[in-house]
């Protein structure tokens, strides 16, 4: 006999993500899901970003990593609350799922927090598929990676709301063609803002910070 279902395979995660979204809305906290391949510079960007947001915007961070607490150790030094998720404990996953983010968020006091940043596991494939209840998604691409990354991982660049092109201080030493990567990003997501910056020199940070502050502001009055 045939049993009709028409059910989303990820419906359990999607439902949990919606509950997260409702919870974060009640807390009036903007949740930012930051994704990239390993080594694109997410943690370095966050260190500099948090420094520029404080004390105006109270921030907290959830860090997802397969192993080690290295990223959390670095971010704790900025003075904001940090919760580390080692996905190893959840079966060595390649992404953060909604229930994992929910558990981590319950370890934070979000009452006076305006921005919760979730640093996802370094991976351009799986995190794009899993809703965690975030408001905005950011993808970081560094100029030491190929210009064709957006074409190889179209879903990631399609689902994100902004892209950060990191390590621009290295451009003079590389064969990386910036115009090609920008063209490739625009093919996938024509309207997406792209911020060119360097986490090392902090060049280009002001536009990114302004955009982020504006998103936090929008959420406050939602």
């Amino acid at each position: 006999m045939e049993v009709k279902l028409v059910k989303k395979v990820l419906s359990v995660n999607d439902t949990m993500a919606q509950q997260n979204r409702q919870f974060f809305l009640e807390k009036k906290v903007l949740v930012l899901n930051m994704m990239s391949s390993p080594g694109a510079g997410k943690t370095a960007i966050l260190e500099k970003t948090i420094k520029r947001l404080l004390p105006e915007i109270k921030t907290a961070v959830i860090v997802g990593d397969i192993c080690t607490t290295n990223d959390a150790d670095r971010l704790i030094k900025t003075g904001v609350p940090v919760v580390q998720i080692c996905t190893d404990q959840f079966g060595g996953d390649c992404h953060l799922a909604a229930h994992v983010v929910r558990n981590a968020a319950s370890d934070l006091n979000l009452d006076h927090v305006q921005l919760l940043i979730v640093e996802n596991v370094g991976n351009l494939v799986c995190p794009a598929e899993f809703d965690i209840g975030e408001d905005v998604r950011i993808v970081v691409l560094s100029v030491t990676e190929g210009e064709d990354k957006p074409l190889k991982y179209p879903l990631m660049f399609r689902v994100c709301d902004a892209a950060l092109l990191n390590k621009t201080d290295l451009l003079p030493y590389l064969d990386f063609d910036k115009e090609t990567v920008l063209k490739n990003i625009r093919q996938i997501h024509p309207d997406m803002p792209v911020f060119e910056l360097s986490a090392k020199t902090e060049e280009g940070f002001s536009d990114w910070i302004e955009w982020l502050k504006n998103e936090v502001e929008k959420k406050r009055y939602e």
């Binding site: 049993v3 279902l5 028409v6 989303k8 990820l10």
Partner: peptide, 15 residues
């Protein structure tokens, strides 16, 4: 994008 992100179980056949 109207389609292309599906990951659905449509039906099962069970005996």
């Amino acid at each position: 994008l109207l389609t292309g992100r599906e990951l659905d179980i449509v039906s099962i056949e069970v005996e």
